[in-house]
Each structure stands twice: as C-alpha cells, then as structure tokens.
C-alpha cells in the first residue's frame, strides 16, 4: 500500500536492496584497502571491469560458466597483486595525494587497454543471465539476481567480520589499520597484511563483476566506472575511517539510488546522481566525519 503510494513496487524495493548490497561489497573493498594502505583506490572500478571482461572472454570462447567465474577471479586477483607490487608498494612512502593520482592513472590506463584490446563495441557476458528471471514470492515477482546479490553480500560481510575478528591475519590487519608503524614494530609483517587486504579487496571486486554482469551483460571499457564514483561518495558519506560506516555508506547510496530511481518519474531519474551528490555534500556539511560514525570513534580503529 505504502509502496504503491510512493510509486514503487516490490521489485523496485528488491532491486534497491540488491544494488545497495552490491555497492556495500564495493565499499568494503575500497574501505579495506584504505584502512591498511591509506589509499583511495579510484581504479577499483577497473578491477571490476577486468573481471567482467574475463567473463565475457570465457563466454566468447564457449567455456562453461564455472570456468568463466574462475577466470574472473584469477584475472582480478592477479591484477590486484600486480598493481600492489608494481605501483602501490614503490609509492608507499609518498603522500596519499601521490597514491591517489597514481590510482587515477591506473584507472585510465586499464580503461584504454580494454578499449584497444576489446574495442569500443563492448563484449557480451551472459554467463549467469538465468538469474534475471523472476521468482514469485507471495504473489510478487522478484528477480532472482536481487535475492542472490543480497544473500551473497550478507554472506561476504559475515565472512569478513569473522576474518577480521577471529583470525590472526584479521587481527594483524586491524592492528596495521590502527597504527601501521607500531604494528610493524610489534612484529606484524606489513607486506603480508597488505597482500591479504589487497586479495580480499580483489575477491570482492570479482564477486561484484559477476553480479553486475548479470544485469548489464554488455561489458564496455567504462563498465562499473559510474558505480565506483557513487560508491566512493557513499564511503565518504558513511565515514571513510571505519569499515562498518563505510560499508553502510556504500549500501545507503546504492539503496537510495535504486529506490529513488524507481520512485521518481523516469524523466527525472536522469538527474538522480545530481540529487545523490547534493545529499552527500549536505550530509558532509552537517556531519563531516560521516553519517554512520559515532562521536569519539572517528579517528579510531579503521578496519
């Protein structure tokens, strides 16, 4: 009843939750690397793009879906590690501004490589297209992808909480995020911690690639670019310094985007990013530390 009044239906709500969930995963990937490396990885979207192209490549060659997904993970993880080794590690001693500019450069480089390699037409990646089909729950049609994306995001976040809270590497990551220098002096192996963070972030990027290609089967060089910008805004909105607020920020911006996209007349929805970014500015003016941070916690533990 309320939904109908708002001009929405259950599908819109489910789409909004699933978009929020996917953005939350991206937010975790970005937030995790920021926590450990103090690096805002603008090239995160291009990792997702690389994974999507891997899925398209497998589809092009007629390989099974499972092989395509494995290739997607392999490509994204290899690329993540290479970027860390070749670019981020040598620049680690430099200021965050230098690192940020480096991620911009990587983003454009990867985009250009995709353009030259795969061409401007884009490649179809329809490996998990069956997830687009609806299931009827209590008389309401909801696309399977909405349910799968939400469940997968919840599972990933739970796994991450367990990793950070219950394992040695998780403890080291949290220590490194709190104070990298002190953690190193106390015996935490910095290289291993960073590699772990980069790998986890890569795994999440690969999952996002699989989820996004279900709804957007055509992979182009700017695939996931706009999503990354929105998620970055969401992370800042939630509170960059802590992982949970950052994740909530990612979810919030995805959910709001999906919900407003469904509620607004479609001839208004093209202005949706403007509304969202205006809201982000407004929130940051009122709460510069982030929407989901609590007083006194802002400068504390970042992971």
């Amino acid at each position: 009843m309320t939904l109908a009044f708002l001009g929405m239906n259950w599908q819109t709500l489910a789409d909004a939750v699933s978009l929020g969930a996917i953005y939350a995963l991206m937010a975790v990937g970005i937030g995790l690397v920021f926590g450990v490396l103090r690096l805002v990885n603008f090239a995160y979207g291009q990792l997702v793009m690389a994974g999507a192209y891997a899925l398209a490549f497998a589809y092009d060659h007629g390989w099974p879906v499972s092989v395509g997904i494995l290739l997607c993970f392999a490509v994204v993880l290899t690329l993540s590690l290479l970027l860390d080794r070749i670019v981020f590690r040598p620049l680690r001693a430099h200021s965050p501004a230098v690192m940020l500019v480096a991620t911009f450069a990587i983003a454009f480089l990867l985009q250009s490589i995709a353009l030259l390699w795969f061409g401007p037409l884009g490649k179809i990646s329809a490996s998990l297209a069956a997830l687009n089909q609806p299931v009827t729950i209590s008389g309401v049609d909801i696309r399977k992808i909405a349910i799968v994306a939400t469940a997968l995001a919840a599972a990933c976040l739970l796994a991450l909480v367990l990793l950070l809270g219950r394992t040695r590497v998780g403890l080291h990551m949290r220590a490194a995020a709190m104070d990298f220098r002190t953690a190193e002096l106390l015996g935490v192996r910095a290289g291993r911690v960073i590699t772990a963070a980069v790998l986890v972030s890569g795994v999440l990027a690969a999952i996002v690639a699989v989820m996004l290609t279900v709804q957007t089967p055509l992979v182009t060089p700017d695939f996931a670019l706009r999503d990354t910008i929105l998620v970055l805004a969401g992370v800042v909105l939630g509170g960059m310094n802590r992982l949970v607020p950052a994740t909530l920020g990612g979810f919030a911006i995805g959910f709001a985007s999906g919900l407003l996209g469904g509620a607004l007349p479609t001839n208004w929805s093209q202005y949706l990013p403007s509304f969202l970014f205006a809201a982000v500015i407004l929130v940051l003016l009122v709460r510069p530390g982030g929407l989901f941070t609590r007083e006194g916690q802002r400068a504390a533990e970042r992971v």
Partner: peptide, 22 residues
C-alpha cells in the same frame, strides 16, 4: 507509457523496464 533512461553508464534502464512491463 512514456519512460526515459540513460545509456552510457546510467543505471536506471532497469526501472524503465519494470515500469514498461507493468
């Protein structure tokens, strides 16, 4: 019905689909 959407990276085409489908 008269719906709009944005290609080139816009993420509202699914909304147009849902509305047209109705």
């Amino acid at each position: 019905a008269s719906e709009t959407y944005q290609s080139l990276g816009g993420n509202n085409v699914q909304n147009a689909v849902s509305r047209l489908n109705a």
